[in-house]
Design a binder for these strands. Structure first.
Lengths: 344, 344
DNA sequence: CTGTTAGCGCGTTCAG
DNA sequence: CTGAACGCGCTAACAG
């Protein structure tokens, strides 16, 4: 490994000067600058980032914790963080939590040990209380796509309650009254928030959702299938199914296709997320879009601001979902409603 | 920040002893061990990984370069690398190349600057010559999912030629003779290798592919649509389309659906990759699967072996694709072949 | 088994 | 504008 010492010797200067041409070239004389620069390129010298970090007590790095890399859901957020930090001349370094609470915690500390100046944490498994404890101890953490009460200024997230409201508004406007709901795991805040928003709006509209038609899924396609089967088993009229993510919606559509039930003619299906694949489903999935990349970018920016004690009040931290209208939800005539439902 | 010095003072020992309880607890006396450990937990001391790396000249870290995080294609490989390294007590740190040759190169060097002990590089944009130059200078790089002649022992990849052969075998066996092909960009080795394998096998079978029916795409869904439109415009009989990735296949299926052309009844479509979404397309896509996660894991293991000068001859480095039979390719009767083709 | 002494490769004073 | 000296937090001999 070629170090600064060798460069300084070849250029006939001190290491301090070499350090200067690296960090503040303008304060060094033109001639010596040239001298050092040619020495650098002659030797193929590359500054050791680890040593620099130690000496300068600044790593210019933000750590990111996500569940796993293999899904485009997390990938899109990570991409956003990375792009934001790159344009701030920071680096992102990501670690996977392997979808466990201990994994999330240990990833945070491992990243902190590496002297990351800030952390962007996506947490599904830690409880609000555990997170609060963590946030009380570590001030440089940003929570990505989740709201932690009491730490609003450290959170960048989608307004899931409004997302649920949006879904309700949309389905109601499309004429649906007999609506089934497929949630994610009960413990997931995304899911419960969306459900809250949805049910509240339904209620406000003077309508209601049959409790028997609220199913708990696990965010995987198979639970979409299961939900459809349960709906059929119940035999109640249902004109629309709201799935809290697109994968479950895909599973539901699949089950319909197999049984010869037409989507959206016989039943409308609404998803959530706007997953990569949603535009390729048949019918193309109408869904509620989360701006994941933007959320990631905002989280990256916030973490950077926090790390550099900059003013972070300017950052947008609450994002709105939006309806992406494709082909899986159909408008139905109110007077034909019950008829349709029964035909199911 | 609490450092070793504070720990040593509180425990009444030297920093060397603190270092020992961290790195080789067995050589230190039980009593002092206890003493130091309580001091550590009392102070909430956490070793600075950067300083450790500098002093020990070992980062226990492998860098990974991929095009982008947002696609599950790269995510699956990254996941494999990460899992393999985690079980070797190494860390993976990933950087995105932003899909450019300079990006790939600078990511490699940035990772090296951070004292990664090895690099796993996925390169689409660098030429073979550029890669050879890089590999000659840097010995600790592993090429993921690409073959570089002359550096076979540094490569972990899918045998794309055999993947192409496999595709040809399958389609021929299913009775297809009038086959169209949609490749990726000409410069991509994946694409040209698969094409080679495909055409060679077709030739060996005494058949041939109409040159007019070989289209160049860009691996994105829209080129699948375009290809279908061109096929229809040509008016030649075609019973099957082989797309060199699943996204293009999805686009092709979509175009068929819109035009009322049934897949696979009117035309069979075969993909490549086994993308996350392929099982949700309609019809479910029959495709050639790449074991991306395993390839990533093998690359991680190889990089680790290289970094630690271990024997890396034992690693499996060439992977085979396999047919995943779903519903988008239909067996056709040879005697009905031309009839079918014309009906298109 | 433990403390002392040197660094790891660099940034950063402070004189000059 | 430049060099000498010191320190970042830790590991690694070497004595004892």
């Amino acid at each position: 490994m070629v170090t600064m010492v060798e460069v300084s010797q070849r250029a006939g200067v001190s290491t301090a000067t070499v350090s200067r041409v690296l960090n503040s070239p303008d304060v060094v004389d033109q001639k010596t600058l040239q001298l050092v620069q040619t020495a650098i390129s002659d030797l193929g010298y590359r500054p050791n980032a680890v040593a620099r970090g130690l000496a300068s007590r600044s790593s210019k790095t933000i750590g990111v914790v996500i569940n796993r890399f293999s899904s485009s859901y997390y990938g899109r957020m990570l991409q956003g963080v990375e792009e934001a930090l790159t344009s701030l001349k920071f680096k992102a370094i990501a670690e996977s939590s392997h979808e466990s609470a201990e994994g999330e915690m240990s990833a945070v500390y491992s990243l902190l040990d590496r002297q990351c100046e800030g952390i962007v944490l996506h947490s599904d498994m830690l409880s609000d209380d555990q997170l609060r404890e963590l946030f009380n101890k570590q001030s440089k953490i940003v929570l990505m796509n989740r709201l932690l009460n009491g730490f609003e200024d450290k959170c960048v997230y989608l307004d899931n309650v409004r997302g649920g409201t949006l879904a309700a508004d949309y389905l109601i406007e499309m004429g649906h009254r007999d609506i089934a709901i497929l949630t994610g795991p009960e413990s997931f805040f995304e899911s419960s928030d969306r459900l809250d928003g949805f049910l509240t709006r339904v209620d406000q509209s003077g309508l209601n959702v049959d409790q028997d038609l609220i199913f708990e899924g696990d965010f995987r396609a198979s639970s979409g299938r299961t939900a459809m089967e349960r709906i059929w088993a119940l035999g109640k009229p249902v004109t629309a199914l709201f799935c809290m993510n697109d994968e479950m919606a895909a599973g539901a559509i699949d089950a319909c296709l197999e049984r010869g039930v037409s989507v959206p003619k016989n039943i409308s299906i609404l998803g959530f997320d706007d997953h990569e694949m949603s535009r390729f489903l048949h019918p193309k999935l109408t869904t509620i879009r989360q701006p994941l990349t933007e959320i990631g970018a905002a989280a990256g920016n916030l973490a950077h601001a926090l790390a550099r004690q900059a003013d972070h009040k300017k950052n947008k931290t609450v994002f709105e979902a939006e309806v992406v209208e494709r082909a899986s939800v159909m408008k139905i005539q109110l007077n034909k409603r019950s008829q349709l439902g029964e035909r199911l």
